[in-house]
Design a protein around this nucleic acid. Structure first.
Lengths: 171, 171
DNA sequence: CTGTTCATGTAAGAAGTTACATGATTTG
DNA sequence: CAAATCATGTAACTTCTTACATGAACAG
C-alpha cells in the first residue's frame, strides 16, 4: 500500500477499505504495529510529516522493502484460502425449511451478492481505474474479477430459484 | 450436522471437513465445547453410545433444537462474509513484478482454483449426491455452486493470461 | 463555528487454531 | 500385529476486532 502511494497509517487503512477489503480485511489496530515492525526490519522508512500541530508520519518503501515485496510476490507459497460465508452455510442446511422459506433464503443470498456487485462496480472499480491510468493495472483486474464472480453467483442463484419454483417439493 | 446424521463430535468434524469446510471451517476444539453448550441449552440431547471400553456420545436434535435451527435459517441476518485469499492479494500488488513473473503468478492462482474444482468434483460432490438420494438436496446444490464458481474463476484467469501474453508491457 | 475527516496509538476481549494428552477399535 | 482410524477433551497461543482515548485540521 505504501508503494501504491498510501503514506500514512490512516491512508493505508482507507485505501485498503476501498480496494483489498473484500479479500483481505484490515483494521487500524493492525496497521500501526505492523508499520513499526516494518520500520524495525528496515523495509520502510518513516519521515516526519506533521500538519501544523498534528503529528503525521510519511512512510516510504526502502530498497530492502521493495525487494521483500517482490520476493513475497514471487514465492510460490499461498496461505490456504479462508472463507466464512453464513449465506452458503444456511443454504447448505436449507433442507430443514419448507419450500417457500427456501426460496426466500435463496433470494436473500442473491440480494447480498447483488449488493457486492453494485459496490464493486460503483465504487471500487472506478477508483481502481484511476490507478490504471497511472500504469497500475492489477487493482482494476482484481476488482473486475471479484465483480464478475459475484455476478456469476447471482445468476447461478437466479437459475436455482427458477428451477425450484418450477418443481414441486417431493415431500 | 447432528440433524444430517453426524452423531458424535468426531463425526461432526469429519462431515464438516467433507462438506462445509470451504465456506465454514471448523476445528475439533470448537466442536466439543459447542456440543456441551447446545446440550446445556436443551437444543441437543446426549446419549451414551460406548463401543466396548471406548466412551462415545451420540447426539440428537431435540424439538427445541430443530426449532432453533429453523429460526436461524429463517432469520434474515447474515454475518458479513469474511474472505482471506492470499492469491488475490498477490494479484492485487502484481504491478511490482516484471511481466513473466506476473504470468507465473496468474498461472499459480489458476492452478489453485483448479485444485479446488477437482476436489469438489471428485470428493465433495459425489458425497453430497449420496445425501441427495436420501432427500437431502442442498449440500449438493452448494457443492455444485462452489465448483462452478471456482471453475469460472479458473476460466477468467485463463483469459487474463492470454490477454497479458498477447500484449506487450507498456513499460 | 460545527461536523466530518484526518491522524495515531493502546488495551481489553473475542474467536479460533495448534499442540498436547490419551487410548481403544478396526482394518489390512 | 502394526498402522490407521475413531474418539474425547484441555491448554496455550495467535490473531484479530472493538472500544477507548485524544485532538488537530478542514470543509461548508
Amino acid at each position: 500500500m505504501v508503494r501504491l502511494g498510501a503514506r500514512s497509517g490512516y491512508a493505508i487503512k482507507k485505501t485498503a477499505d476501498l480496494s483489498t477489503r473484500n479479500f483481505w480485511p484490515t483494521s487500524l489496530a493492525q496497521v500501526y504495529p505492523e508499520l513499526a515492525r516494518l520500520e524495525d526490519a528496515g523495509l520502510v522508512s518513516r519521515r516526519d510529516d506533521a500538519r501544523g500541530e498534528r503529528v503525521r508520519s510519511a512512510y516510504e518503501l526502502t530498497e530492502a522493502g521493495e525487494a521483500a515485496l517482490v520476493a513475497w510476490l514471487r514465492s510460490p507459497r499461498l496461505a490456504p484460502v479462508q472463507l466464512r460465508d453464513e449465506g452458503l452455510l444456511k443454504l447448505f442446511f436449507a433442507d430443514a425449511l419448507p419450500r417457500p422459506d427456501q426460496l426466500d433464503l435463496i433470494r436473500h443470498v442473491r440480494a447480498e451478492d447483488h449488493a457486492s456487485v453494485t459496490e464493486l462496480r460503483e465504487q471500487i472499480i472506478p477508483l481502481a481505474e484511476q490507478a490504471h491510468r497511472h500504469g497500475v493495472k492489477f487493482p482494476a483486474i482484481v476488482a473486475r474479477l471479484s465483480a464478475d464472480l459475484y455476478a456469476y453467483a447471482e445468476e447461478w442463484l437466479a437459475r436455482l430459484e427458477q428451477e425450484l419454483s418450477a418443481s414441486q417439493p417431493p415431500e
